[in-house]
């Protein structure tokens, strides 16, 4: 199966009656621009008339979608877990290398900006000698690595809503992936109590607290959610508890049922509005109301 030329329709390189080939062309082909494909197919003798063309197209698209669904259903929470870990590793490594690279580049070029942006600038330079060649080559690698980190993020943004629609809607795709990654899978996340979800990612602080040092952590990775970090410090504990409760429910719906339920998102929005209204009421803050809030 050769890929379609940039300006040809899906039917172009498919033999008549070759159903597998047609589905493959639907799935893997591409074109720079659409055209009047029905007319072209009739003209090329692929279809007797446009009705015949649409009938063939229907069979091919349904077959292709069915195949692709079967394959993609293998895309599970474990893929998400690997993707988010790979993204974090790629980002961290790119930053570390960029630091090294810009430090080195400072001895060779003028006005080197720091960080990945700096490395990307250097990557576009024309090297004059063997030293500069190495610096520019390193910068190019960093540029690629940072690009891969961005692509991984895009991949996670598309995959997370498939794996966990409610969790991804509530937490955002990347935080949803991080929670799944920290728990070790959607299955184990769904089985955790919300108090554990609340402090996922704050294990050091939690165990220090359990060993008698320091206060208990109010939030773990869910701190990155705007509902937590956008709430005033006095109310962050409440916000984190409310969010963790709903996230736990979202993870359970995603794991055990898989359908999207708008209701729980509205409930969280309401709860957050109540918590944030305390700031407007001139309440001194702090969780002094005797913990009457519902956990879930």
């Amino acid at each position: 199966m050769t890929p379609n030329a940039a300006d040809s329709g899906w039917f172009e390189s498919v033999d008549s009656g070759d159903l597998a080939g047609a589905a493959d062309a639907i799935r893997r082909g591409s074109a720079d621009a659409p055209a009047d494909w029905p007319a072209q197919a009739v003209e090329a003798g692929v279809a007797a008339d446009t009705d015949d063309y649409y009938a063939q197209l229907r069979t091919a698209t349904i077959d292709a979608a069915r195949e692709a669904v079967a394959e993609r259903e293998g895309a599970d929470d474990q893929q998400l877990l690997h993707a988010v870990r790979a993204m974090d590793d790629a980002t961290r490594t790119a930053n570390e290398l960029a630091e090294r690279c810009t430090e080195w580049a400072n001895t060779q070029f003028d006005d080197v900006a720091s960080g990945i942006d700096g490395a990307r600038e250097i990557a576009t330079c024309e090297p004059d000698d063997p030293v500069q060649e190495r610096v520019v080559a390193l910068a190019t690698r960093i540029d690629n690595l940072a690009t891969e980190a961005d692509e991984l993020r895009g991949f996670i943004e598309r995959l997370a809503p498939e794996v966990a629609p409610n969790l991804a809607e509530m937490a955002g795709p990347v935080l949803a992936a991080r929670l799944i990654s920290l728990a070790g899978g959607l299955d184990s996340l769904a089985k955790k109590p919300s108090g554990t979800v609340q402090v996922l990612g704050a294990e050091d602080a939690l165990f220090a607290h359990l060993a008698g040092r320091g206060s208990s952590p109010k939030h773990g990775i869910i701190y990155t959610h705007p509902y937590v970090n956008g709430t005033r410090p006095e109310d962050r504990g409440s916000a984190a508890r409310a969010l963790a409760g709903k996230l736990t429910i979202a993870a359970r719906i995603d794991h055990y049922s898989g359908d999207f339920r708008p209701g729980i998102h509205d409930e969280l929005d309401d709860r957050m509005a109540t918590i944030r209204a305390r700031a407007d009421d001139g309440d001194g803050g702090g969780n002094v109301d005797g913990d009457t809030e519902e956990e879930q």
Binding site: A31, D32, P34, D36, W37, T61
Partner: peptide, 10 residues
Amino acid sequence: DTYSHIVESD
């Protein structure tokens, strides 16, 4: 681009 070879123009 990934479906321009399928979806017709106009």
